[in-house]
Design a protein around this nucleic acid. Structure first.
Lengths: 241, 241
DNA sequence: TTATTATTGTATCATTATGTTACAATAATA
DNA sequence: TATTATTGTAACATAATGATACAATAATAA
């Protein structure tokens, strides 16, 4: 969960939102042959965290997750997957939130709702890096891409949440392929393979990968791509329908 | 979620429990070649539901789920998997709970915590049918096995929760094999195959199934089983270590 | 005792999927 | 026009899975 007084996601009073339940979003992007994650920074505290938010009184939980990711990325067509609920009591540590609230000029009484115990529902999102405009929630934090392999230390158990999200993504990679949203609408087979290799963390054999992908029957071949390279130009593909 | 005034899982005041979050457990058993589910019945209302409960103020969510299943089955070594959070606003319908509370002689003020909106964390459990002693929570409900294919209509969206649990189980059946807890400690290959077929809802080829199971290297062959049948006696197996 | 019966364990072959090597096609550059 | 790097795909090897066949055997019947 991330929060703050002027966040669109909520407000300091917590009015109109469910208490005790937060949403944390691991937003994956792919750029420069790297998996990236969108992170929030609390400027005056040096704290990094996953983008997150709360659920409105009459809002579906999945809709709230969509809204949270939408607010940070500016996108509306987002692939989202709910992957785990983080509910250990040991997660509960109000200290950093106290610091954040204080750093923003508020006084946080002990019984403030943000200082109570929270359960976090974890979602991961797959988004097209090129279409995202990271949007900080308010003047006091930033929102930027970080390489998965080079993240700063995160608030609470957020680092483990990212790891668990990656595990969930790896497990269901093939199922999630249709409408795969980590790539631009059109892409080459090489780009798709690179994405696979980056997510799975291992090399794949080119002919086998190509055969398998084409065998799935979900790719549509469009046209040759002009790359400028001194070699045969690759085909462009997009996902069918 | 299931609840009631004298339930060990909670009490009518809700003191000491997290508000707005419930746990629902789909407890799978296997008997007479049938997948079965443990259901609660509210006797004076005719309402059936999944066993459920709430999370104590300082309790891990997974521990709460274990406790809930333990209370209903009498078992302590339980295979549990958190599979989904049900958080649609449309789930919210206090009417049946009002009826249940009333049927038990309590007056339920509108602002009663049980009549507020709840998010349900769904768990499924795999248990050894032969070791379970279904335990109703209190005098006013019962707790019994029902065939998956022959369940009564359930409270709220509990029927969909069961379906989603079955889907999750099917998807991860092979992973969940080690320490598979739907069978007695010792079993024949035929029994294991029947279990697979029941969960997956389709026939499997015997030689291929046997080869695959033995190939996994997780089975230990013990001794011949005396069946009384007019045919070759099958081997008994158990899971290694 | 000896055939009969049903079911198990496994060998064998067929088919499909996957891993691997090889090479022609081709877009830019030299 | 040759060179270069990379793509697309054919071809083969190996592994996994699907399917058939049959010997082994524990109870029953003759």
């Amino acid at each position: 969960m991330t929060t703050g007084a002027k966040d669109e996601t909520t407000d300091i009073t917590g009015r109109g939102y469910l208490k005790g339940i937060a949403i944390d979003a691991v937003i994956f992007g792919f750029h420069d042959n790297q998996l990236k994650v969108l992170l929030i920074e609390y400027k005056r505290t040096g704290l990094f965290a996953l983008p997150g938010g709360f659920i409105k009184d009459k809002e579906d939980v999945n809709a709230a997750a969509l809204r949270v990711v939408s607010e940070r990325t500016g996108l509306t067509d987002i692939y989202l997957d709910q992957f785990y609920v983080f509910g250990d009591y040991a997660r509960y540590n109000p200290a950093p939130f106290k610091a954040i609230i204080k750093a923003n000029g508020y006084d946080a009484p002990e019984e403030h709702w943000l200082l109570k115990r929270f359960i976090s529902i974890g979602y991961y999102a797959l988004v097209d890096f090129t279409r995202v405009t990271p949007a900080p929630a308010a003047i006091f934090d930033s929102c930027e891409w970080y390489e998965l392999n080079n993240m700063p230390p995160l608030l609470q158990d957020h680092t483990q949440i990212v790891e668990k999200a990656l595990g969930a993504l790896r497990n269901s990679l093939d199922d999630k392929l249709t409408g795969f949203s980590l790539l631009p609408r059109e892409f080459t087979m090489g780009e798709l393979q690179l994405l696979y290799e980056t997510i799975l963390g291992k090399k794949l054999l080119r002919p086998a990968f190509q055969r398998k992908m084409l065998g799935l029957g979900i790719l549509e071949r469009i046209a040759k791509k002009w790359t400028g390279g001194a070699h045969k130009a690759p085909y462009l593909y997009r996902f069918k329908k």
